[in-house]
Nucleic acid binder design. Structure first.
Length: 775
DNA sequence: ACGTGGCCACTTTTT
DNA sequence: GTGGCCACGT
């Protein structure tokens, strides 16, 4: 294998084979390249592909790695087990979970299902739902599971009344999950540890299968994942390589423990550490900005990224008056530059995507939204999946209750109670009780409907092809239900979603069975094995998995989702105190360390950019229907002024409060921040450069087009009566540098100016936006 | 049983 | 601005 395309450190990382290896890989330092080469190198030097386990953070990263290994090795790559932690654990559980008393056909519950169950529990236990929040309980449960704290331990440590309530909910929750034969995401990891711990034979089997283990994004592993790695490598016969960057640890809220990477060398004896600091992704201007932000963090492994890519364009920061202008300006610029595929807009919270989406629609800019409402969280999709779940897991009462009355079968609370009572008295699962509807005291109509339901389930169960199950379900009742429920337009839309699911099912069927060494270890899988595997696949799909970089579309996503990705042009938006860093982090008891996590997130965002980085903030932002004021993010202040072009609003303009009552959102949340003056509506319309009028506090979806027209025709952009440059003049632009005007066209609301820039060539700009200056 | 209107809380980040 | 939940009417 030719390693000459790798630098010295990268080569060293590929070749090192003595013991545990930690590769500290800065952003863009080619770590995926190193892992891929390492895997390929191992295989070329006689390691059997099915002895290699590579763990990535997302399915997308896994399939990318598969592709790259494939291009180096060809068919040999198929046998390498490349997957996410959860998928890997899913596989193990699928085969070995019966050793700890669960059924092999378990269902994976997502956060939504989890919340539903918890709300039910809170009600059942007689607590006030307003005081005991399902969210809070869920996060406490997750915390315990991620830190390997058992219910008993939690109970003992619970001091306050609230803690005791949480503990009680936790207990009932786990019992319910067990009854449903269901696991949540955290269970998947935790139960894997349990199996490995309690069953030496199984542990040995798996650990001797995977002689080489590679873990990517190691900085975001939690304690339980760490435990899994340790259990699999404790015999000393396994070669472990982990790759990570402590500066990119951004999942503490999910239990990720940065100490896993910081203390790697203490835990794994004789560990070797190799640092990769040469960056191949970004320009030096971008890297310097990244470095100047991240150096404000304490307790990190010191390193400084550098590159040979030249300085490149200067990083630009722009402050806008409000979030609408931020979105308008950015989307119109993206439209002009017409390079959607290589451009991404990043933000701290998913709620911020909305404004950008609306602008994209208005400007006809094609976009992909990552995250937010997941495809698989849509109601119709969840319904179809619930039907599929009860086919393979009859204990899955949560899914049964979801669809027993969808479509409407006249089965309400009282009928359900009777069914449950019957089930309890006869020691049956609720689904079994439904099958015995004839023996239950129910009205004639309900019995008839249940008969139909039972026949439907039996019919679906007899069907082996994934797509046929969906087709049958649609035909027998669900399609009609969609149109009845949502009307022609929305019904069709939702039906389309189901067809998309059907397509995924077909693709899954066609690529099945994939080579899977763990499956070989299994002896007798059930008849519905494809359906089961399909459902596991779907449960573990994440948002970023759906990004398709071949489409010429602008990408909108949260900073978290952007990890591991790269784009030529990055718009890092919403750089405001209280938003980024978040209010929660600033006001937390542990503010210092939480702000450090936010700073790492900022670092991740900055280092996504290859060529151009645009940072932006807004003075006023819409929050829950009213405006709040914000200060510029501290992260902007941390950037060395020499590294960045700042376009900041005049400090005296436009700083007032439109919110009726003071909430924490009202002051830009930097400590000791000022309180803003109260808002005077009449004053509002006097302000130029604003496209709201006094009757229109917010821009609704419907009014948006009109607003933009108003905006274009004069409420905001002021078309110059004359331009102070003409064709042939030399002009300068804040971002593109100097160039020569080659064309000026009057398009009514503004002038379109074409400039041949010295550095980047010809570009057409709106005069009112470009603010060109004659030199 | 089921639809509807009004009230409320809500926004970090995700496998 | 929005979705979830409750009370009430059919």
């Amino acid at each position: 294998m030719n390693l000459s395309s790798l630098n010295k450190e990268q080569q060293q990382a590929v070749l090192y084979n003595e013991g545990p290896l930690l590769i500290i890989a800065g952003a863009g330092s080619g770590k995926t390249r190193v892992i891929t080469y390492k895997v390929a190198y191992l295989v070329e030097n006689g390691v059997s592909p099915d002895n290699i386990l590579a763990i990535t953070f997302t399915n997308k990263a896994a399939s990318e790695m598969k592709e790259r290994v494939d291009s180096l090795l060809g068919d040999n790559s198929k046998k390498i087990f490349i997957s996410t932690f959860h998928k890997f654990c899913g596989r193990i559980l699928r085969i070995f979970i019966e050793s700890i008393g669960y059924n092999r056909n378990f269902t994976i519950y997502d956060t939504d299902d989890q919340k539903k169950i918890l709300n039910k529990i809170i009600k059942e236990l007689g607590y006030d739902e307003k005081k005991v929040k399902a969210r809070a309980v869920a996060s406490r449960i997750s915390f315990c599971k991620n830190h390997d704290i058992s219910i008993d331990e939690f109970k003992k440590s619970a001091k306050s009344e609230m803690e005791k309530i949480y503990a009680r909910c936790f207990e009932v929750y786990d019992k319910k999950m067990f009854e449903n034969n269901a696991l949540d995401f955290d269970d998947m990891l935790l139960l894997t540890v349990r199996i490995l711990k309690e069953n030496e034979e199984i542990r040995k089997k798996i650990s001797s299968q995977f002689k080489y283990i590679l873990v990517d994004e190691y900085q975001d592993t939690n304690m339980v994942q760490f435990e899994i790695i340790k259990l699999l490598t404790m015999d000393g016969n396994n070669k472990l390589t982990v790759v990570g960057d402590d500066d990119q640890s951004i999942y503490k809220f999910r239990g990720a423990d940065i100490r896993n990477i910081l203390e790697f060398e203490n835990v794994f004896e004789n560990a070797k550490i190799i640092k990769l600091t040469q960056n191949y992704r970004s320009t030096n201007n971008i890297l310097n900005v990244a470095n100047s932000v991240i150096r404000n963090n304490q307790g990190r492994k010191d390193k400084k990224l550098w590159s040979e890519n030249g300085d490149g364009a200067k990083v630009v920061f722009t402050e806008y008056e409000d979030d609408s202008k931020e979105a308008y300006s950015i989307i119109s610029e993206i439209k002009r530059n017409n390079d959607y595929k290589n451009t991404a807009i990043l933000y701290r919270t998913n709620a911020q995507s909305r404004k950008f989406e609306e602008m994209c629609v208005s400007f006809s800019v094609p976009y992909t939204l990552v995250g937010g409402i997941n495809f698989y969280e849509r109601r119709e999709i969840k319904d179809i999946l619930a039907y599929m779940h009860i086919l393979v897991n009859p204990s899955d009462t949560n899914s049964l209750f979801r669809i027993i009355n969808v479509p409407k079968r006249g089965i309400g609370e009282s009928s359900l109670a009777k069914i449950l009572e019957y089930a309890g008295n006869n020691n049956l699962m609720p689904l079994e009780a439904v099958f015995n509807f004839d023996k239950i005291d129910l009205s004639k109509k309900v019995k008839e409907n249940l008969k139909e339901f039972v026949e439907l389930i039996i019919d679906l169960k007899s069907e082996n092809e994934l797509d046929n199950i969906i087709d049958k379900l649609l035909k027998r009742c669900y399609e009609e239900f969609l149109y009845d429920e949502y009307g022609d337009e929305e019904g069709k839309e939702r039906l389309e979603n189901i067809y998309e699911l059907r397509n995924k099912a077909i693709t899954f069927k066609e690529t099945y069975p994939e080579n899977d060494i763990l499956k070989d270890l299994a002896s007798n899988l059930s008849a519905h094995v494809i359906l089961e595997d399909f459902l596991y696949e779907i449960a573990l799909i994440s948002d970023v998995d759906n990004i398709n970089e071949n489409e010429d579309k602008l990408t909108l996503m949260s900073l978290h989702a952007s990890k591991g990705l790269e784009y030529d042009n990055i718009y890092l938006t919403g750089m405001n105190e209280g938003l980024f860093p978040s209010y929660q982090s600033i006001s937390s008891d542990d503010s210092d360390s939480e702000v450090e996590e936010e700073r790492r997130l900022c670092y991740v965002g900055i280092t996504r950019a290859k060529k151009n980085l645009y940072l932006s903030s807004a003075r006023r932002r819409m929050h829950n229907g009213s405006y709040n004021n914000y200060l510029i993010s501290r992260f902007i202040d941390e950037i060395d002024d020499k590294l960045i072009t700042k376009n900041v609003l005049r400090t005296d303009s436009n700083f007032f409060n439109t919110s009726a009552n003071d909430s924490f959102w009202d002051y830009g949340v930097r400590k000791n921040s000022f309180k803003s003056k109260s808002f005077n509506k009449n004053k509002f319309i006097d302000i130029k450069n604003d496209f709201y009028d006094n009757n229109q506090k917010t821009v609704s979806k419907i009014d948006l087009k009109k607003s933009i027209d108003t905006y274009k025709t004069g409420a905001n952009i002021v078309k110059a009566t004359t331009l102070d440059y003409e064709v042939g003049d030399r002009v300068s632009h804040i971002k593109f540098g100097e160039g020569k005007v080659i064309k000026i066209e009057d398009i009514g609301r503004d002038y379109e100016v074409t400039v041949d820039f010295d550095d980047i060539g010809s570009k057409t700009l709106f005069a009112a936006f470009a603010k060109l200056e004659k030199i």
